[in-house]
Design a protein around this nucleic acid. Sequence first.
DNA 1: ATAGTGTGCAACCAGTTGGTTGCACACAGG
DNA 2: CCTGTGTGCAACCAACTGGTTGCACACTAT
Lengths: 114, 114
Amino acid sequence: MRPDMEAVAEQVFTALADPTRRGILAALAAGGPATATDLAARLPISRQAIAKHLALLAEAGLVTAEHGERRRVRYRLRSAPMQVAQQFLAALARDWDGPLAALKDHLDGRTTSS
Amino acid sequence: MRPDMEAVAEQVFTALADPTRRGILAALAAGGPATATDLAARLPISRQAIAKHLALLAEAGLVTAEHGERRRVRYRLRSAPMQVAQQFLAALARDWDGPLAALKDHLDGRTTSS
DNA sequence: ATAGTGTGCAACCAGTTGGTTGCACACAGG
DNA sequence: CCTGTGTGCAACCAACTGGTTGCACACTAT
């Protein structure tokens, strides 16, 4: 079940690279699931700006929309995509300074090890 | 020794969010340390564009510049900042669906866990 | 019926970003 | 001396992004 791990990681990275988005996620983590208008009351930007960010976060799978009574929509955190991103980072680091890198350096004419 | 972990993570996320940048890093991982012109030969963009990306990657600490003979500059991968980013992701995930989140939900009037 | 509250959609705007071209400079070899 | 190669800097450009405002729509309550 890896629907293109790199694509998920890219979306997570894009989402988490923005301070405002991290602020929204922190607000959700601190106060539990909330609606866009609720978040707009706590953050210094407009509801529509928050709605755009929530759409992007939902696209990345970091939040899920829960439709409640009277057209209200609550957003809840989802940590699963972040674990995918973590694995992606781990895989990258393994590729970079793993034994392959040393071999490459050797073939490159450098005597990195031994 | 944490010079603002979140700042490092943000730079890593910004750097890794761009496909071209990941391509440059992949080329470095595959072929070992290389110069900007060398990378420009393998990638479909100009040397100057690559130089800009390398500057950003160096700023994030993901590559280091090694000044060699005759004004040549080779860039080498550094995986340390990625491990910081990994820890940041782990801390976030812990904050989200850890016991605190359940408590918050409870205080919010919801009976998530008995 | 109408007012109030909450959501979604679209237009618009300024700043950033990814990319290009062009040029100036440093240095080794003919 | 010049020519070739490699680097750095700056200007410029199109596209994207983060943010705003305005408006239309849905639904509940008075």
